[in-house]
Amino acid sequence: MSQKGGVMNNLQSLVQKAHQSGDYNQLLETIPYAQTLGVRCERFGNEVVFVLPKRDQNLGNPILPAIHGGVIGGFMEIAAAFHLAIFLEIDDLPRIVDFSLDYLRAGFHQETYAECRLTRQGNRVANVSVSAWQKKKQEPIALARAHFLLPIKER
């Protein structure tokens, strides 16, 4: 993904700017899909919590109504990629390889949160677990794990 010859593309320079300022919401705002869902992040010391706001256009099942399962998945994918970018201080967003998601409870028409854990980091690939919840963190609505390809570190 990184451009050769030391020339940075826009995304890389935005990622680096976010590392310097600590404001990752600015970076989220540059990703159209994250904006479509409305994803934000909040940092509490060393903890980062991602937020999916209550939005009508994110709904799937009209009966409950419930958030579209794909939106919950997309939200968790964004969270996982950002978690890696933030904590590994890599200068690009990692590329997703695979994503496995268990839906545990219906995601109601409410604000939803997600938190990630880096399960294993290799040289090229990282494994991240994601938990998403609404009212109670102990009662997740979905659990996911994903593999990402890490950008090659420029030395």
Partner: peptide, 20 residues
């Protein structure tokens, strides 16, 4: 444009494919 995940390349985000 609204499902793009990378503005440099214009590639759509994996999340939109998950929804599909």
């Amino acid at each position: 444009q609204k499902i793009v995940g990378n503005l440099d390349t214009g590639v759509i985000h994996g999340g939109a494919i998950t929804t599909l």
